[in-house]
């Protein structure tokens, strides 16, 4: 008996250690949260006037909101062990669909619903390709990424119709707010709260972690893996479409470049925020903090007037550092447990 007890006590002591900083670091997404705090403090102290300028705050909100909304869907997919590269194309395509309906004179609410349904449908296609046809998500979602980016370009380039000058209510939806916070940012906050509650408390939310942790075992335990993953792709598509519609409203025009790099930014943010391409880990707040950190970093480059091309280099290093630290910590724990 003693031989079972000894290692456990050692580990459990560590697990319950009073070192609250170490404990904090073990909570998923805390690294991204700390990085946000550091960036915030840095910007607030070094360039307070520029940083707290109302225009800068507005720009930050416009940067965070759409990508944050997309990141929620991406994090859900990552937790269940897959991902979606087509989100940027969905943004552009769903935005264009809504814009076309608006120009055709349909009621605003109908136009928005059509746009959202287009996103859900693309998510459903992605889900079918991955779960039913068994195509690797990298390949299948690159496929849909190209198809719908291409379709957007085909419908927009060289056409005589301009998809802009939408009804005022629709444009205000993207440009106006409440209590000094844009509608799109309110939407982000509500979605983060709703999906956090869903993931943390609902059985289906838990099942995402089971599937991501051990796909085959989850199947043996009677969890409906295919249904849940297809559902996750549909949510991702829905949220990407919503982000695309919001940006279309804000721009008062359909734009074929919307979401050009969103898929990469969002995956990077999710990984910094505690997600993993191996699946089974991550949290919605983590995804949000990842996006906020990315936006702060971008903001810092703007405010300091740095060469913007440097931004990607720095971001690449940050990503590698976060992933390496995580890998190193896992390796050390495995060694302590005598597994490797």
């Amino acid at each position: 008996m003693n031989r079972i007890k000894a290692p456990l006590q050692k580990i459990s002591n560590k697990f319950l250690s009073k070192n609250s900083f170490k404990k904090l670091l073990k909570i998923n997404g805390s690294i991204a949260f700390l990085m946000c705090l550091i960036m915030f403090a840095f910007l607030a102290i070094s360039v307070p006037k520029l940083f707290f300028n109302p225009f800068n705050i507005q720009a930050l909100m416009f940067a965070i909101a759409p990508e944050g909304i997309v990141a929620i869907g991406m994090m859900i997919l990552l937790i269940s062990g897959v991902f979606d590269l087509s989100v940027g194309s969905v943004m552009a395509f769903a935005g264009l669909m809504t814009a076309m309906m608006l120009v055709a004179g349909l009621p605003i609410i109908v136009c928005i619903i059509i746009g959202l349904l287009v996103g859900v449908a693309i998510g459903f296609i992605n889900g079918l390709l991955v779960e039913m046809a068994g195509i690797n998500p990298l390949i299948s979602t690159i496929g849909t990424m190209y198809i719908f980016r291409g379709a957007t370009e085909f419908l927009m380039v060289g056409r005589s119709v301009d998809y802009n000058n939408f009804p005022e209510i629709f444009v205000n939806f993207g440009r106006k707010g409440f209590l000094g916070v844009y509608w799109m940012f309110w939407i982000l906050i509500i979605l983060v709260v709703v999906f956090t509650i869903f993931i943390v408390t609902r059985p289906t939310g838990k099942r995402l972690y089971f599937i991501g942790g051990n796909e085959n075992l989850a199947k043996l335990m009677g969890i409906k893996k295919r249904k849940i993953r297809i559902g996750a792709y549909m949510i991702s598509g829905l949220l990407a479409a919503l982000a695309g519609i919001l940006m279309t409203a804000k721009n008062d025009a359909a734009n074929r470049y919307i979401g050009n790099v969103t898929h990469m930014n969002v995956i990077i943010a999710c990984v910094i925020g505690g997600g993993s391409l191996n699946g089974g880990q991550g949290s919605i707040p983590g995804a949000l903090f990842g996006i906020i950190f990315l936006s702060f970093l971008q903001n810092a480059f703007n405010l300091f007037d740095f060469e913007s091309s440097m931004q990607r280099i720095i971001l690449g290093f940050v990503l590698m550092a976060v992933v390496s630290v995580d890998g190193f910590m896992t390796l050390r724990r495995q060694k302590e447990l005598g597994r490797i």
């Binding site: 408390t201 609902r202 059985p203 838990k206 972690y209 089971f210 075992l217 335990m221 009677g222 089974g280």
Partner: peptide, 26 residues
């Protein structure tokens, strides 16, 4: 071994999540 390494001991023992509160939460 057939376990969910990313989950807790309790969640591994009851992967069906069959204990729900009145509001339907785990």
């Amino acid at each position: 071994l057939a376990i969910f390494e990313n989950m807790t001991v309790a969640e591994n023992i009851f992967p069906a999540c069959d204990y729900l509160t009145k509001t339907g939460a785990v």
